[in-house]
């Protein structure tokens, strides 16, 4: 059986067309990444001043008078720092319970992983709405604490899922070596943690990046404030919200500060992402 020349040609035309589509798609991916960063950084660089990063909003801030968004930077750091720690406290035990204490075929582990997948997919605005109802139920007002709780809930599934991936790659031999020495499961967990320390760091960075960029969740729960909070019950600003609010103001001066804040946020996120990639590379080199 010999295919006709016409059919033969068609086969290669399709192949070439597909190749062109692929190159275009790849180009699009690069173009989008570069275009977004380029636009945000260029515009932000034009607007940013030292004063913006180091001072709090002054009087008439939102109609274009003096001041900066230090309140938002510090607020974001507070929320992200606290929720990262809380998130780790909850997700590390959960991950190791699934992987070390439970068997691979365990029903609970299956259901749990599915649930974390679902939680991972729940939009942050829903987390915000839920946390808000929760706060009303216990009589809490919008506050730093509210923001921390919401963000913690938001990053737990992210942390668990990415750490789970890392733990799954731990070779069976390590467990075998540990158990063969008579270790309990708890002692084995400690060993495994040592083995994947940098993997945990990467997972943490990933969720820090996610947490610092989240706006919809804290919108409901952290409120907004022009000063740096001094207690957990005070409202606090965050960088993404500060960008959002300032950008929706009609004054050009206020909008420019939004671009400057966007510049700061982008730089932070890029650094975190690069650091994560660096750690991953290092991690994969030293794995046994």
């Amino acid at each position: 059986m010999k295919s006709s020349p016409k059919k033969h040609r068609k086969k290669f035309v399709a192949a070439i067309a597909a190749r062109v589509c692929m190159y275009l798609s790849l180009l699009a991916v690069f173009a989008f990444a570069i275009a977004i960063i380029w636009a945000v950084i260029r515009r932000g660089w034009q607007c940013i001043t030292w004063e913006m990063v180091t001072s709090l909003p002054g009087g008439g801030f939102y109609i274009g008078k003096s001041g900066g968004f230090l309140n938002a930077i510090v607020g974001s750091i507070y929320i992200v720092g606290a929720s990262t720690i809380l998130g780790l406290i909850i997700s590390i035990p959960a991950v190791f319970y699934l992987n070390v204490y439970l068997k691979k075929t365990s029903k609970l582990a299956y259901v749990a992983r599915l649930a974390y997948d679902v939680l991972f997919g729940v939009p942050s605005i829903v987390y915000g709405a839920f946390a808000f109802t929760l706060m009303i139920a216990v009589g809490m007002r919008t506050s730093l604490l509210g923001g921390i709780i919401t963000t913690t809930l938001l990053i737990i599934p992210i942390m668990i899922r990415s750490m789970d991936e890392v733990v799954k790659n731990v070779p069976d031999e390590l467990y075998e070596a540990s158990y063969a020495l008579g270790s309990t499961r708890l002692e084995t967990v400690k060993l495994v943690i040592r083995q994947i320390l940098s993997g945990i760091a990467t997972a943490t960075l990933l969720s820090v990046g996610r947490a610092i960029g989240d706006a919809a969740g804290v919108m409901f729960t952290a409120g907004f404030s022009d000063s740096i909070p001094t207690s957990l019950t005070q409202q606090t600003a965050t960088l993404p919200l500060s960008i959002f609010f300032q950008l929706s103001a009609p004054q050009v001066e206020v909008q420019e500060r939004a671009y400057a804040a966007a510049f700061v946020l982008t730089i932070i996120v890029l650094i975190i992402s690069l650091l994560g990639r660096f750690l991953t590379n290092k991690f994969s080199k030293h794995k046994i």
Binding site: L26, V29, F30, F32, A33, I34, A35, I36, I37, A39, V40, R43, G209, I212, G213, D214, A215, A216, P240, L241, I243, F244, L247, A258, Y259, A262, L265, T266, V269, L270, I272, S273, G276, R277
Partner: peptide
């Protein structure tokens, strides 16, 4: 390609919004 995708995944939603209004 993977770093480019990483960056797209890491950028916060508000930054996409800023880019949208800018460009």
């Amino acid at each position: 390609v993977y770093p480019a995708l990483d960056i797209l995944a890491a950028l916060p939603s508000v930054i996409y919004g800023v880019w949208g209004t800018l460009v």
